[in-house]
Computed example of a mutant assay.
Amino acid sequence: MKITVDEPKCVAAGQCVLIAPEVFDQRDEDGMVVLLTEAPDADQHEAVREAALACPAAAIHVADS
């Protein structure tokens, strides 16, 4: 799995951080998404997919390897 984030689309809702905190974070100054890892471990894949679906701006893109 490889994750990319379209940062300009991010609306700082924070759903990704709530669902997959080991993979996503938010910048303190503006709440924008921070991708902690582009290739998470297999045990994180389900949460990452859920986070991508929950993103109100559709800013998270997931590609299976």
Results as ranks from 00 to 15, higher is better:
56 P>D: 12
38 E>N: 07
31 G>F: 04
32 M>T: 15
55 C>L: 03
29 E>F: 15
20 A>H: 02
47 A>N: 13
27 R>N: 09
43 D>E: 14
20 A>R: 01
38 E>D: 14
51 A>W: 06
48 V>G: 07
49 R>D: 10
52 A>F: 02
33 V>R: 04
21 P>G: 01
56 P>G: 11
49 R>Q: 15
58 A>C: 14
23 V>Q: 03
40 P>W: 00
29 E>H: 13
54 A>C: 06
41 D>C: 05
31 G>C: 03
22 E>S: 11
38 E>G: 07
57 A>S: 08
28 D>K: 09
22 E>A: 06
53 L>A: 10
25 D>R: 00
51 A>D: 09
26 Q>V: 08
53 L>F: 08
33 V>F: 07
50 E>S: 04
34 V>L: 07
50 E>G: 02
24 F>M: 06
54 A>E: 10
36 L>K: 02
57 A>P: 08
45 H>C: 13
27 R>K: 14
24 F>D: 05
58 A>E: 15
48 V>S: 01
34 V>K: 09
45 H>S: 11
39 A>E: 13
58 A>K: 12
35 L>T: 06
24 F>W: 04
32 M>K: 14
26 Q>H: 09
57 A>V: 04
38 E>I: 11
47 A>G: 11
53 L>K: 09
23 V>I: 09
39 A>V: 15
51 A>N: 06
26 Q>A: 09
35 L>S: 01
56 P>H: 10
35 L>P: 04
25 D>M: 00
47 A>W: 13
23 V>S: 04
48 V>Q: 09
30 D>Q: 10
46 E>Q: 07
22 E>L: 08
46 E>T: 13
53 L>C: 06
56 P>L: 07
25 D>L: 02
23 V>W: 00
25 D>N: 00
54 A>V: 05
55 C>I: 02
34 V>C: 08
55 C>Q: 02
24 F>H: 05
26 Q>E: 10
52 A>V: 00
53 L>R: 09
31 G>W: 01
52 A>K: 00
35 L>K: 00
41 D>H: 10
24 F>E: 12
27 R>G: 07
39 A>Q: 15
38 E>L: 06
34 V>I: 15
38 E>H: 10
21 P>K: 04
49 R>L: 11
33 V>C: 14
41 D>V: 12
52 A>C: 03
39 A>W: 08
32 M>G: 13
47 A>Q: 11
34 V>M: 11
52 A>P: 03
35 L>D: 05
24 F>T: 02
37 T>S: 05
57 A>H: 02
51 A>H: 05
45 H>Q: 14
46 E>I: 13
39 A>P: 05
43 D>S: 09
32 M>W: 15
36 L>Q: 09
42 A>W: 12
38 E>A: 15
44 Q>G: 03
